[in-house]
Amino acid sequence: MATPNVPLWEVFIRSRNGLAHKHVGSLHAADSTLALQAARDIYTRRGEGLSIWVVPSNAITASDPTEKGMMFEPAESKIYRHPTFYDVPDEVGHM
């Protein structure tokens, strides 16, 4: 009773104009047309979106969670990248 494998797609939805597309989940579909239709049925039954992207899951390159230290730690020590690092005299007011 083995069933053939159908490709996996990741679904991104823009909920309102002005907002970015956000990942909402995944689904299986034979091609991009069917993937879009399935995404509409599965993820926007209550008006959740104005625009849908579907991306083949195997087209995504992801960072390795076990290497997150190497990836992200260098940013943590660079507090001079934040505005609060700098002193502005009170008399100057809001800047």
Binding site: N5, V6, L8, G25, S26, L27, H28, D41, I42, R45
Partner: peptide, 18 residues
Amino acid sequence: GHGLYLYAAAETLGTSRE
């Protein structure tokens, strides 16, 4: 739809939908 969200979640653990 609920079944499909859940299958997708289960698949992330490494077993195929089929």
